[in-house]
């Protein structure tokens, strides 16, 4: 039996809102040691989502037997919208479940809402992602990255990211003209989440689809900062840290074959 109780429903609500536009169906893997993990790839096989919610993400967590819960994320999102962000949220499943029970509790108002979501058999192939060497790692405020990704998409369907040891430059070249935004590395000791940190082994110049970057920044409400790891001619990794877990996106770049 699985029983995972979140102190607030907001984490799960934000996670599902962050991924449901990229992948429609996905398997939730549940185990006592790892908590809940997800690996899902979008239909175009360009963007991969890796979610980890350790048992420490939960107020209470037990999972007697490893479970795979196949979910339609649009349906899950409909149910998660029924609860308030500050409600307790509990996910419950039997050992051979055909449905997932989702319970919201508002202890102050003595309100309990229960929903049952039908599960599906989802055939998904799993990709092996090794801990990658990277040419550079950038940590910046998640909102600042979201603004660049959203603004630049209006100019071009591609966004070029150029990193040197003291700045990150985003460049868009479109039919109406061009644009660039430079963010300089800075350490803000009063407010560390406002810092822009660049850890550079080698300068990087990579191009990504603006559409996919705009899917990734849907995770912005989950974390104050995002860490981006880039390597020449290889997929980039975008990480939003959660308390006791993470939501990572792996995005294949654009380049000449």
């Amino acid at each position: 039996m699985l029983e995972g109780k979140f102190e607030t429903a907001s984490t799960m609500k934000k996670v599902i809102e962050a991924i449901k536009d990229s992948v429609k169906l996905c398997n939730l893997n549940c185990s006592q040691n790892d908590g809940i993990t997800v690996q899902a790839i979008d239909d175009s096989r360009v963007l991969l989502i890796a979610l980890k919610l350790d048992p420490s993400c939960f107020q209470e967590f037990r999972c007697d037997k490893d479970l795979v819960l196949g979910l339609d994320l649009e349906s899950l999102s409909k149910i998660l919208r029924q609860g308030n962000p500050e409600d307790y949220l509990t996910l419950i499943a039997e050992d051979s479940p055909d449905s997932l029970l989702i319970v919201f509790e508002d202890s102050k108002k003595d309100r309990i809402s229960e929903f049952s979501l039908k599960l599906m058999d989802i055939d998904s192939d799993v990709l092996t992602i090794d801990e990658m060497e990277h040419d550079c790692a950038i940590t910046l405020p998640a909102a600042a990255f979201a603004k660049v990704a959203r603004d630049m998409k209006t100019l071009s369907e591609s966004l070029q990211i150029l990193v040197t040891k003291d700045s990150v430059k985003f460049k868009a070249d479109g039919s109406i003209g061009t644009g660039s935004v430079i963010l300089r590395a800075r350490t803000n000791l009063d407010d560390t989440k406002e810092s822009i940190l660049i850890d550079l082994n080698k300068p990087v110049n990579l191009t990504f689809g603006a559409k996919y970057l705009n899917d990734i920044v849907k995770a912005t409400p989950l974390a104050d900062t995002v860490t981006i790891k880039l390597t020449d001619k290889a997929p980039a990794m975008f990480e939003y840290k959660l308390q006791g877990g993470f939501l990572r996106y792996y995005l294949a770049p654009k380049f000449e074959d």
Partner: peptide, 14 residues
Amino acid sequence: PSHQQTLTKFFGGS
């Protein structure tokens, strides 16, 4: 123009 690559080119499948 550059071409969109796919992840399967970089990551092993199972």
